[in-house]
């Protein structure tokens, strides 16, 4: 079976998850590149419509972290 490479959009909170993603970089933790980050000021800023919009436009998964 062909390996599936899902496209993931991540909404990361500026104060925690985004800082965590930065720190993963500082710690040079290598990880898969399927994810693209959108920085928000709080995970609560993520309107459910953003998630629908992302899935509708062809992304396979959405991560909201905060």
């Amino acid at each position: 079976m062909e390996q599936v490479e899902p496209k993931i959009v991540a909404f990361l909170c500026n104060w925690c998850a985004y800082a965590g993603a930065d720190l993963a970089g500082v710690s040079r933790l290598q990880h898969p590149s399927n994810m693209r980050t959108v920085r928000v000021m709080c995970s609560g800023r993520v309107d459910p419509l953003f998630i629908v919009e992302a899935l509708k436009s062809g992304c396979d998964g959405v991560l909201v972290a905060g």
Binding site: D22, A24, G25, V26, R28, S33, T37
Partner: peptide, 12 residues
């Protein structure tokens, strides 16, 4: 952010 969240984590 093409360093912390890109070049540093996909360096290989």
């Amino acid at each position: 952010n093409i360093r912390n969240q890109n070049s540093w984590i996909h360096s290989k």
